[in-house]
Design a protein around this nucleic acid. Structure first.
Length: 321
DNA sequence: AACGGGCACAACCGCAACTCA
DNA sequence: TTGAGTTGCGGTTGTGCCCGT
């Protein structure tokens, strides 16, 4: 036996709320308070589902809501909390008085997450033509990546052609190599049964110091005699965007940032057992590349770190936990 | 001016968690 | 303890507006 629906769907209105409906809902709640959402529509004379009423009230009508653009402080709070909480927008919203989870969710989806790019397999997934076109052509309204394209991009995980691996530093128009998806690193099984995966990190960096950031990463990857490897895995990706290709050896028992390393002798160019987890935890700034325990933290200033927004880590951190 | 694409935001949906009899 | 009812969360979709071509 199926579960009883939350309300009778038939005869109920959907879509945009009218002023009249808003007024009915406000008046009812002001007079009676919030009780049972299920019975509220009937009592208030609304042809709406209780859930719809609740959502309308919580996200739009209650008078303690703050309207308008997010301040820089709020944005920083969202970014910071998203790093640790992931997409739990309700918890994030609890730290931002007057803001709703829906508002934050929309803001994250439409603004903040566009500042970074998702991982994609370096070798398996071709970059959609529309994205190449968008990045390479003259700026339209925005140089950022749209939701629709990003979604299409993220969902195109069934394509398995192999794009050319090229590096084209200082050329902002053609150095698109591959793409990666953070939440779903492609894994493949080798003949000996070990797992390996490869990913690319797309990053959008802001400001005129883009070249500095680019060189920072490149330098990090060239430390300890792995000369030229930086160029092999770093590409300038267009205006204020760059791409980092990572091949990861996931044969270790667990994904753990602790043993990130560069191994030029390995058939795969660079090895990091946990590129995804480490990136999401900002560990890319502190990679102990050669595993000698040397602290690399001072390679980056806080200001530099702040220029890069990392994608959600919720899925990845849960794998480590 | 018309059209198409991208964006922002409101609203919906499915499901898990919670409550309570 | 159990299960039905309710609430809330996170993901997704719909829609109108804006801007570039």
């Amino acid at each position: 036996m199926g579960r009883k629906p939350c309300c009778e769907k038939t005869g109920l209105k959907k879509g945009k709320w009218t002023e009249e409906e808003d007024e009915k809902l406000i008046n009812y709640i002001k007079a009676n308070g919030i009780g049972s959402w299920r019975s509220l529509p009937k009592n208030a004379g609304l042809l709406r589902c209780g859930k719809s009423c609740r959502l309308r009230w919580m996200n739009y009508l209650r008078d303690d809501l703050k309207r308008g653009d997010f301040t820089r402080d709020e944005e920083e709070t969202i970014v910071g909390l998203h790093k640790t909480l992931g997409n739990r927008t309700t918890m994030i919203a609890s730290h931002l008085p007057g803001r709703t989870d829906n508002e934050i969710k929309n803001y994250w989806n439409s603004q903040l997450c566009r500042k970074i790019y998702n991982f994609r397999s370096i070798s398996e997934y071709p970059l959609p033509k529309d994205m190449i076109k968008m990045i390479n052509t003259t700026k339209k309204r925005s140089s950022r990546v749209g939701r629709a394209v990003a979604k299409k991009y993220n969902n195109s995980t069934n394509s398995h052609s192999t794009p050319p691996r090229t590096t084209n530093l200082n050329n902002t128009s053609t150095s698109i190599v591959a793409e990666g998806k953070a939440s779903d690193p492609l894994e493949s099984t080798s003949l000996d049964g070990s797992l390996s995966s490869s990913s690319s990190l797309f990053m959008e960096v802001e400001g005129k110091e883009f070249e500095d950031i680019f060189m920072h990463f490149k330098n990090i990857l060239e430390i300890d005699g792995v000369e030229n490897e930086g160029e092999n895995i770093m590409s300038n990706y267009g205006d204020n965007e760059m791409i980092m290709h990572i091949e990861s050896d996931t044969t270790s028992e667990k994904w753990d940032c602790g043993d990130c390393r560069i191994n030029s002798e390995n058939e795969s160019t660079n090895v990091c057992s946990s590129p995804i987890v480490s990136y999401f935890n900002d560990e890319a700034f502190h990679w102990d590349i050669d595993g000698d325990g040397e602290d690399l933290t001072n390679l980056w200033t806080q200001e530099e770190e702040d220029m890069i927004v990392w994608p959600s880590q919720s899925n990845e951190t849960s794998k480590v936990a």
